[in-house]
């Protein structure tokens, strides 16, 4: 999987390393901004109120 991505990146090793870093940061950003806020309510830490549900 990662080998496949590496082979398909353009440029020499330095350029590939740089692009990989950017890709990793982009993935982390998407996770923190969108995926984790969505997944977080599935965990119990949010239930601090009394209600009828």
């Amino acid at each position: 999987m990662y080998g496949w991505i590496w082979r398909h990146l353009p440029g020499n090793a330095w350029a590939r390393a740089f692009i990989s870093l950017v890709l990793i940061l982009a993935v982390v950003y998407v996770l923190f901004q969108y995926v984790f806020p969505w997944a977080e309510p599935l965990l119990p830490f949010n239930d601090v109120t009394v209600n009828n549900q």
Partner: peptide, 25 residues
């Protein structure tokens, strides 16, 4: 190889999620 890469990815995801919950929120 693919299986181990998947395991590493899932592990990294869990670590990131814990960091998000404990620290980032």
């Amino acid at each position: 190889r693919t299986f181990s890469e998947l395991c590493i990815t899932i592990g990294a995801l869990i670590v990131l999620f814990v960091a998000y919950i404990l620290f980032w929120t």
